[in-house]
C-alpha cells in the first residue's frame, strides 16, 4: 500500500507542476474570450473546493455557499460604489462579513443534521437573495451594481493572474487543513459525531469552524469575482450558481481534494462548447451530475481510481 502511494505521488506532483505552468501561460496564447472562461473557471475552482471542504469533509450539505460568495461580492462592491473605499480594502471586509455570517449560520445549524441543516441553509440563502433583490437603493437589484476593478485599470490578463494566485492560495490552505488535525477531525465528525465526541473531538467547534472557513473562502472568491465582472447581480447568490458549484463537486468527486478542481475546470470548459448550440449547458450538467451521483458516487476521481487499481 505505502509503496504504491510513494510511487504515484511523484509523477502526480510533476503532472501538477506541468499543468500549472501551462495554465499560467494561458494569457500568452489564449484569446480574450477563452481567458474569460479560464477566469470564471478559477472562480468555480475556489467555490467548489471550499464547498467540498464543508459538505464533502464535514458532511454539512449547505445550500448557502453561493450566498456567501454574494455576501463577499456585495460587501466590497457596495463599499467601493457607495463609499469609494478601494476594493483592496473592501476585499478583507467582505471576507470578514462572510466569515461572521458563516459563524452565525454554523451556530444556528449546530443542533441539526442532514435534511434540516440543508433546509435552514436554503432558507438563509433565499432570505439574502430576496433582500438583495428588493433593496434596490443599495444594491441596484437585478439591474446590477457597478463596481471598480480590484486595482488600477481593468485588464483581463492581470485579473487572470490575480484569480490564479487566489485559487492557488485557497487550494494550498485547503490542502493544509485536510492534512492537519483539524482535517482529521472534520472527517471524524462526518463519519460519526457521537463517536468523535466520545474521543475528545469538540464537535460543535469543529462544525462551526468549517462553516466559518468555507464562508470566508466563498466571500473571498465572490469578492474577487465581483471586481473582475465589475457588475454584481443577484445571480451570484442564486440557487442556480449554487447548483453549478454542487454539480461540479459531485461530478469531479465529492470528499476528494482533486475532485472539485477537475469538476470546475471540466464543466466550465464544457459549458463554453455547449453554449454554441444554445443554453443547454445547465440541463446537460444536471443530467451528467445525476448519472454520476447514481452510478459513480465518487465522481470522476473515483472512476479514475477504479481504473487505476483495475489496471
Amino acid at each position: 500500500m505505502e509503496v504504491i502511494t510513494a510511487n504515484t505521488k511523484k509523477p502526480l506532483t510533476v503532472v501538477g507542476i506541468v499543468v500549472l505552468a501551462l495554465f499560467a501561460a494561458f494569457p500568452l496564447f489564449l484569446g480574450q474570450y477563452w481567458l474569460h472562461t479560464a477566469i470564471v473557471g478559477l472562480f468555480y475552482v475556489m467555490m467548489a473546493s471550499s464547498w467540498n471542504l464543508l459538505a464533502g469533509y464535514t458532511g454539512q450539505v449547505s445550500f448557502a455557499h453561493a450566498a456567501f460568495a454574494g455576501v463577499g461580492a456585495y460587501t466590497s462592491g457596495i463599499l467601493a460604489a457607495k463609499a469609494g473605499l478601494p476594493p483592496l480594502l473592501g476585499l478583507p471586509i467582505g471576507i470578514a462579513v462572510a466569515a461572521v455570517l458563516g459563524l452565525a449560520l454554523g451556530s444556528l445549524c449546530i443542533r441539526m443534521g442532514g435534511i434540516y441543516l440543508s433546509l435552514t441553509t436554503l432558507g438563509f440563502s433565499e432570505i439574502l437573495r430576496i433582500i438583495v433583490t428588493n433593496e434596490y437603493e443599495i444594491t441596484r437589484g437585478t439591474m446590477g451594481l457597478k463596481t471598480p476593478p480590484l486595482f488600477g485599470e481593468y485588464s483581463k490578463t492581470v485579473s487572470f493572474y490575480v484569480l490564479l494566485a487566489a485559487a492557488l492560495l485557497i487550494l494550498w490552505l485547503i490542502r493544509r487543513i485536510l492534512n492537519s488535525d483539524l482535517g482529521a477531525s472534520f472527517r471524524a465528525v462526518q463519519n460519526d459525531e457521537t463517536a468523535a465526541a466520545s474521543l475528545g473531538i469538540p464537535v460543535v467547534r469543529v462544525r462551526i469552524l468549517a462553516f466559518v472557513i468555507a464562508g470566508a473562502m466563498a466571500g473571498f472568491a465572490g469578492s474577487l469575482y465581483g471586481h473582475y465582472l465589475m457588475l454584481i447581480t443577484p445571480h451570484i447568490l442564486s440557487l442556480d450558481l449554487m447548483f453549478l458549484v454542487l454539480a461540479m463537486t459531485v461530478i469531479g468527486g465529492m470528499g476528494t481534494f482533486i475532485g472539485p478542481i477537475v469538476g470546475a475546470l471540466f464543466l466550465e470548459t464544457l459549458s463554453e462548447y455547449i453554449r454554441v448550440y444554445g443554453e443547454y449547458h445547465i440541463l446537460i450538467f444536471g443530467l451528467v451530475a445525476l448519472a454520476v451521483a447514481r452510478f459513480a458516487p465518487q465522481g470522476l476521481v473515483g472512476l479514475w481510481r477504479q481504473f487505476r487499481s483495475a489496471v
Binding site: 488535525d181 482529521a184 477531525s185 472527517r187 471524524a188 463519519n191 468523535a196 474521543l199 475528545g200
Partner: peptide
C-alpha cells in the same frame, strides 16, 4: 469511523 482507515480511526483519538 467507517470511511476511515484503522490508522486514521486511532489517530482521531490521539488528536
Amino acid at each position: 469511523f467507517l470511511g476511515m482507515t484503522c490508522y486514521e480511526n486511532v489517530l482521531v483519538a490521539l488528536i
